[in-house]
Amino acid sequence: MTRLLRIAVIDDNRSELFLLEEVFKTFAAQVKVTTYSDGKAAFDAMQHSDALCPDVVLLDINMPGMNGFEVLKAMKADAKLKCIPVVVLTTSMDESDVMQAYALFASAYLVKSGHFSDLLKQMKSLVEFWTRTRLMSWPSPSALDILQEVPLSR
C-alpha cells in the first residue's frame, strides 16, 4: 500500500482551515493533512530535525506576522525545505501577488473557490496530481546532499 500524501495547510483564517479540513475528510484514505494557523509556526515545525516533511504545502499569502511570501522565501532558502512544492492557495486575484509567488518559486497559484463544491473539485484535482508526482521517500539523505549542491537561481 502506498503511504498517504502529506499535505501541510498554512492559513491564519480559522474558518478557511475548518472548510479545508472538511474538504480533505473526503480524501482521508489518500491524504494526511496538518494545519497551521501561523506562518512562523509552520516554518519552524518543518525545519525541526525530526520533522516529516510534507509532500506539498498549501499556503495562504495574507497572514499577520510571517506572511505567505515570507514563508515561501524562507522555505526556498532552506536546504531541507527548498524542493517541497508550495501551492499558493489564496483569495487574492491580484496580478502582482501571482507574479511575486512565482518569482519566489511557488509551484502553482490557486485562487480559493468560495463554494464548497467548487473547492472540493479544486482539492480533488490537487490530490490526484500530487499523489502521482510526489517523492515517495522525503527527505532522503542523498536527496538533501544533492539539493545543497544545486543553486537556487542561475
Results as ranks from 00 to 15, higher is better:
residue 2 T to V: 09
residue 7 I to V: 15
residue 8 A to H: 06
residue 9 V to C: 14
residue 11 D to R: 01
residue 14 R to T: 14
residue 22 E to N: 10
residue 22 E to A: 07
residue 24 F to L: 15
residue 24 F to I: 04
residue 31 V to W: 03
residue 34 T to N: 08
residue 35 T to N: 11
residue 37 S to G: 13
residue 45 A to G: 08
residue 45 A to F: 06
residue 50 D to I: 07
residue 51 A to R: 09
residue 55 D to F: 00
residue 56 V to I: 00
residue 57 V to E: 04
residue 58 L to M: 04
residue 58 L to A: 08
residue 60 D to T: 08
residue 61 I to D: 10
residue 64 P to H: 00
residue 68 G to Q: 09
residue 73 K to A: 15
residue 75 M to N: 01
residue 76 K to L: 11
residue 76 K to E: 12
residue 77 A to H: 08
residue 80 K to V: 10
residue 84 I to T: 05
residue 86 V to A: 04
residue 97 D to A: 10
residue 97 D to C: 03
residue 99 M to H: 14
residue 100 Q to S: 03
residue 101 A to G: 05
residue 102 Y to N: 07
residue 104 L to G: 11
residue 104 L to D: 12
residue 107 S to M: 01
residue 108 A to I: 11
residue 109 Y to H: 11
residue 109 Y to N: 10
residue 113 S to P: 10
residue 117 S to P: 02
residue 119 L to V: 05
residue 127 V to A: 03
residue 129 F to G: 09
residue 130 W to N: 04
residue 132 R to H: 14
residue 133 T to Q: 02
residue 136 M to P: 05
residue 137 S to G: 02
residue 137 S to W: 07
residue 139 P to I: 07
residue 141 P to N: 10
residue 143 A to E: 15
residue 144 L to R: 07
residue 149 E to C: 02
residue 151 P to N: 10
